[in-house]
């Protein structure tokens, strides 16, 4: 199986605090890998490293076999898209928000293209001219996903994108990601606080605790983990 991402002893400090502690592992190409673990375990920080918003203090990250530090940051961020927990929308219409990336890269972005992206995330086409701030929580998150997809990334990082949504919207996003994953041939990395979600959508699951990856396991076997802390965590013992 080919790797989309390979991590070797990745370590990161914030001031004097150890945030990521010698993280190693492989993320399989075109699969969905889910990330679970207590808050503050370093999951979001790891994603920021993969999108190039931060750099590790030591260790190596390879994206499609190329060292991340050798990839032009702009190219890296286009290739590895990130969707954050809080859908940060800029003032303007839905179209304006979708057009951010093309504008950054001086690329034309037609109404038809915008409509196609809206279709793929299940937002109605007439939303294009609506003010982005009038959308509901679920719709904002869909727009946020669509905005990242406009860059046509190979790897998609999703950071707790359903945590602020109600169950119905969360499930809609879940099936949406599964569809997009196949449709766009994407490698998906997904941080979630919901164990069931991690199992349902994931092929592989990484469990992170105190800046370390304590378990890398096929998602369906998560409940059978023999690691005592992981077993306790999935039963809801650790938050």
């Amino acid at each position: 199986m080919t790797e989309a991402i390979s991590l070797k002893e990745v370590t990161l400090y914030d001031q004097q605090t150890l945030i990521l502690d010698h993280i190693s592992g492989q993320i399989h190409k075109n699969k969905i890998t889910t990330f679970i673990g207590p808050s503050g375990s370093g999951k979001s920080t790891l994603f920021r490293l993969l999108n190039g918003l931060r750099s590790a203090n030591s260790g190596d990250i390879f994206i499609h076999n190329q060292n991340i530090e050798d990839i032009d940051p702009i190219k890296l961020r286009t290739m590895v898209g990130i969707v954050l927990q809080e859908a940060i929308l800029l003032p303007g219409t839905v179209y304006d928000n979708l057009a951010i990336a093309p504008r950054l890269h001086n690329r034309t972005f037609t109404k038809e293209e915008a409509e196609q992206v809206l279709d793929s995330v299940g937002l109605e086409r007439h939303f294009l001219s609506k003010s982005a701030h009038t959308l509901s929580g679920g719709q904002k998150q869909k727009l946020s996903i669509a905005r990242t997809l406009v860059n046509k990334p190979n790897i998609l990082l999703l950071d707790e994108i359903t945590s602020s949504l109600d169950q119905v919207s969360a499930q809609a996003i879940e099936s949406l990601i599964q569809t997009i994953h196949t449709q766009y041939d994407l490698t998906v990395l997904w941080i979630t606080h919901n164990i069931e979600q991690a199992i349902n959508v994931g092929d592989q699951t990484w469990v992170m605790m105190d800046g370390k990856v304590v378990e890398q396991i096929p998602s369906k076997q998560l409940y059978q983990s023999t690691h005592p802390r992981v077993a306790e965590f999935v039963k809801g013992g650790i938050n």
């Binding site: 999108n51 702009i74 961020r77 809080e86 951010i100």
Partner: peptide, 16 residues
């Protein structure tokens, strides 16, 4: 800060 990082995360330059 979040808006600035959003633009960076989508492949924008610091100036953008």
């Amino acid at each position: 800060e979040k808006q600035i990082e959003l633009i960076l995360s989508l492949g924008g330059t610091p100036k953008q």
